[in-house]
């Protein structure tokens, strides 16, 4: 009887931790996307003229996007399609395509960090380049929500 209870509790615990692990990954994924969104918002503030042009802000925003998008694909471990259903199974079906989009955003931002947009207009153009990569990936790999 005791053995059985222990076994049952162990099973419950294992199941619970598996669920926890999955949603923890999910939380990290969401946090990463929000970080990128926040950085994009700062660039957009400058591009639209709501905020004055500030080279330091631009550089920080681009760096945030760059480092975050490099981490992002590591949050989708191979062979572990999402259990809480928030991530599209298409990511695991076409991991190379998914990572290709992330690599592209890393490349675009690296290029922009090396030659930073120097005024409001250039920030607008940079934002356009970044936004294109965002929606290209979201078109294929984000679930409708």
């Amino acid at each position: 009887m005791i053995k059985r209870t222990i076994a049952a509790s162990l099973i419950c615990l294992t199941a619970a931790s598996a669920v926890f692990a999955a949603s923890e990954l999910g939380d990290k994924r969401e946090a990463d996307m929000k970080k990128i969104g926040g950085a994009t918002a700062q660039l957009a503030g400058i591009a639209k003229g709501d905020k004055p042009y500030d080279a330091a802000v631009v550089k920080t925003a681009l760096t945030t996007i760059n480092t975050t998008i490099k981490e992002f694909p590591t949050l989708f471990p191979a062979g572990k399609p999402d259990e809480d259903g928030h991530a599209s199974p298409k990511i695991w079906e076409n991991m190379a395509g998914f990572k290709g989009h992330a690599d592209e955003l890393a490349m675009v931002t690296e290029k922009l960090i090396a030659a930073p947009p120097a005024d409001q207009k250039a920030v607008g153009a940079a934002l356009g380049e970044i936004g294109k990569v965002c929606s290209a990936c979201h078109q294929d790999f984000r679930l409708k929500k």
């Binding site: 969104g37 918002a41 957009a44 929606s135 979201h138 078109q139």
Partner: peptide
């Protein structure tokens, strides 16, 4: 026009087209 939501999420799925 731009594909960005007010929270700076980007447009996704079939709405991209």
């Amino acid at each position: 026009e731009t594909g960005f939501t007010p929270e700076f999420d980007s447009v996704g799925g079939s709405m991209v087209a």
